[in-house]
Amino acid sequence: MQHVIDPTPYKKVALFGGTYNNWSALEHTVADALRRGAEAIWFLGDAGGFGPLPNRTVDLLRSLPVRSIQGNYDDSVGNSKEDCACGYTDPRDNHFAQISYDYTLANTSTDHRTWLAALPAQARIQVGAHRVLLCHGSPRQVNEFLWESTTPLGFVEWLCKTEKTDLIACTHTGIHWERRLEDGRGIINVGAIGRPANDGTQNVWYAMLEDAGDRVRSTFIPVAYDVTQMSDDMRREGLPEEFIETLNTGWWTTCLEVLPGRERMRGQH
């Protein structure tokens, strides 16, 4: 699997994950990142799932100034696999995941599938003098769930050392957080822009990294988008009301069983 290396010492880089077919959030996120002066914008994978009209999102990812790496969903859709390989273990989670996946697979063009299948697995970039590794779930497993409450400092130290990097940026869980060592090395989960972060708001989130000399400064940025338009599209496409409820309330209604207790109790369901 291809890994991209970009040695350009960027001052400001925007990172987002999990578009989940949310083309409106994608438009707003990229516009916001450009307005804030991002020199590079990276998508950390999982274009499809959950939302409507997958071709619109992939059209945008290919036409906007965004570079992409491959998530498990992109590998599955790109290679027409049987399921999304999201890593769920609960029957209800898998039920809804399969509805999303079958819809996305059936409605993604052959040309876009070819593009998704060819995406690189990881990228290594520079923010100032700092090495940043971009991946989907984790550098060692594309569908590993790195939650804040299950990512201890010892693991952060071990993974940065093993991967020979200063910062690891990932997504896959859909909730943004970061954990840093005292020397500034760390892991940042940039969250997802395809659905809210199970926080009771309609916003979605992305991350901006900036060179701050001795360390990389990170900021999580909320993005508002056209929830009504997206809900209408989802209804027209016959997607589950549970998904539409999540966009409108900001609370996850499905795929909850993978959440650790700490994160689960912060949500409504």
Binding site: T150, T151, P152, G154, F155, E157, W158, L159, T162
Partner: peptide, 9 residues
């Protein structure tokens, strides 16, 4: 030992 080996859980 687990910490030095990068244990999560």
């Amino acid at each position: 030992t687990g910490v030095s080996e990068g244990m999560r859980h």
